[in-house]
Amino acid sequence: MQRMLTEIRIAGFGGQGVILAAAVIGKATAIFESGHATMTQSFGPEARGGSSSAQVILSSEPILYPYITRPDILVVMSQEAYTRFSPELKPGGILITEQELVRVDRFPAGVRAYGVPATRLAEELGRKVVLNIVMVGFYAAVTHLAAPDSLRKAVADSVPPAMQHLNLQAFDKGFAYGSELMIKLSEHDNDSVVATLEVG
């Protein structure tokens, strides 16, 4: 029996909605699709301080080992999170960054990296706080781990009714940005994937 298992880490500052983003990703698979998801959070003293990190495992089978070992996908929304967690990214994995908050200087060979100005896109909606959901929309477009509709449902299910519209807009904005990026990238060679990053 071959397990289809994806390990995801999402990390950033406290207050960026890291945990909610992780919960949305887990919920989409566990509740709005037929898969399994386990989310854990860092509850060290750091959880009370500036940084925040959550881990999600997605699987077609019940998840036994509860923690991630080497993430297949790393979503980072702060330079500190990038510096701390990018070395553990699995070769062939996916790095997703808030491109105006994270300057990518190095990452493991074979990693595909995608950036999104999520804070700016959120500000265009008038509320910077939804940058986490912009990130989730972008994640949906570049990973295809769950149907966008499942993630959308998970977003709606995870926020108070009064905030639903705004958050769905944020999701759609991130998703659209990611979809355009993917189309753009597919028009180039595979090698140019990395080149789209603002490396340096």
Partner: peptide, 10 residues
């Protein structure tokens, strides 16, 4: 235990 207590699942 802390792991089960803080683990989120369906």
């Amino acid at each position: 235990d802390e792991c089960v207590g803080h683990m989120t699942e369906k």
